[in-house]
């Protein structure tokens, strides 16, 4: 069964036709070529596929693309690029809070969601926000440091917008969703 959906991804409305079994993760990666979100387990246990849906972090491997119809989706690609990093990304760079990098897009999105909801988290709150994001390389300590630093930086710089989602970009057509 196919469904026509309209999703606002990183500020741009995207229209697509997806089969029922298309996961949001596959829709982002395969149909939109947004490869930042990774599949680590497919079972909602590792958090590598974390993206924000309507501002809340979710595992995109456990959401159907059709369920995201009408929703606002923010992926790491919507945060910032090398020339204009989000404070969270900047803090990850400065704290060397990454190694292999595979968990990092998900980790960054979890951190972003936390700081949108709670701009001044405690260390324990940071740990809780990322305890659904597994990392095998870093031992987590620098990631927690980075998120604490990002919170302080944002605090110093005043309120930050939730991502850099631009307003009036034209809708991109996605002719067909693969998979069937």
């Amino acid at each position: 069964m196919l469904h026509n959906i309209r999703v606002r991804v990183n500020g741009e409305w995207v229209e697509a036709c997806v089969p029922s079994h298309r996961r949001l993760l596959d829709f982002l990666r395969e149909d939109l070529d947004l490869i930042g979100a990774k599949e680590g387990c497919g079972g909602g246990e590792c958090g590598a596929c974390t993206v924000l849906v309507n501002g809340e972090p979710i595992n995109s491997c456990l959401v159907l693309a059709v369920e995201a119809d009408g929703a606002e989706v923010l992926t790491v690609e919507g945060l910032g690029d090398a020339k204009d990093l989000d404070p969270v990304q900047e803090a990850f760079v400065q704290n060397s809070a990454l190694q292999c990098g595979y968990c990092i897009p998900g980790m960054v999105m979890s951190a972003k969601a936390l700081l949108i909801r709670n701009p001044n988290p405690t260390r324990d709150e940071v740990v809780e926000a990322i305890s659904g994001n597994l990392c095998r390389c870093t031992g987590y300590a620098r990631i927690v440091d980075a998120i604490m630093q990002a919170a302080q930086a944002a605090d110093a710089a005043g309120p930050a917008p939730a991502g850099r989602a631009a307003g009036h970009a034209p809708a991109a057509e996605v002719s067909r969703a693969g998979g069937e």
Binding site: G44, G47, T50, E56, P57, I58, N59, L62, V63, S110, A113, E128, A129, S131, G132, N133
Partner: peptide, 9 residues
């Protein structure tokens, strides 16, 4: 229950 991401769903 689960992680923050899980509890959002």
């Amino acid at each position: 229950v689960g992680s923050l991401q899980i509890r959002n769903r």
